[in-house]
Amino acid sequence: MLLTLSNVSKSYRTAEGPIAVLRGIDLSVDAAQSVALTGESGSGKSTLLHLAGGLDRADTGSIIVNGEDITALDEAGRAGYRRKTVGLVFQQFNLIPSLSVADNIAFHAKLADRYDADWARELTDTLGLSTLLNRYPEQLSGGQQQRVAIARTLAARPALVLADEPTGNLDETTSEVVLDLMISLSRSAGSALLLVTHSSRMASKLDRQVVLRGGKIVA
């Protein structure tokens, strides 16, 4: 297993007291497997993704990625984990405005010391970005920016790709195309993909579907 969550729980403090968001989550994802994480708003999907991405700490349990328990890492260790092991894709494209498309795509891979020009070329060709490499984010459509964000994530060949509603800001037709490319390219990179979506149609494209309800996995 590339990713294993065991008895993972997370609560947040509020003025009214702690609110449990995740309650004893057990989940495993194989290398190069794609898993859709579905459920109603507030069921804990994004929180689970943030914990697996090292963006937040679990209250209890362990999260093993590539044999390493990331819950035992300090802040510097989690930053290194995010740089070397995991790739994140969100609804917000988070591209660097001052960098060209080519430089945005190369940015994380070079930080991880894993930039491969041939792989970057394959990504840009497959994602239809080859003619846009000298443009800047503000010169791109939403769908083009999301393709750049996906290329940037996959350029470093992360062991684990975490995607939170990555096509949520796109129209239906563009969403289908972008998601299909993301799944295909994740497999080509050998990356496991854990993707949050509200769409049952989108979820059906992935290898497995996991349903969260009230902070627990129910299916």
Rank of each mutant, 00 (worst) to 15 (best):
T4I: 10
L5F: 15
V8L: 14
Y12R: 10
A15Y: 05
V21H: 06
I25G: 05
L27I: 04
V29L: 14
D30L: 14
E40T: 04
S41I: 01
G42H: 10
G42Q: 07
K45D: 06
T47A: 13
H50A: 12
G53F: 08
D56H: 06
G61F: 05
S62F: 00
E68R: 12
D74A: 11
E75Q: 13
E75M: 10
A79N: 12
A79K: 11
A79V: 13
R83N: 08
V86H: 12
Q91Y: 05
P97F: 05
V101W: 01
D103W: 01
Y115D: 09
L123D: 03
T124I: 11
S130V: 11
S130T: 07
N134G: 08
Y136H: 06
P137I: 07
S141Y: 07
G143S: 02
Q144K: 02
I150V: 08
I150A: 04
T153G: 09
P166M: 01
T167F: 00
D171Y: 00
E172G: 06
E176C: 15
S184F: 07
R187E: 07
A189I: 05
L194W: 11
A203Y: 00
S204Q: 15
S204Y: 02
R208Q: 12
Q209H: 13
R213C: 13
G214Q: 06
I217T: 13
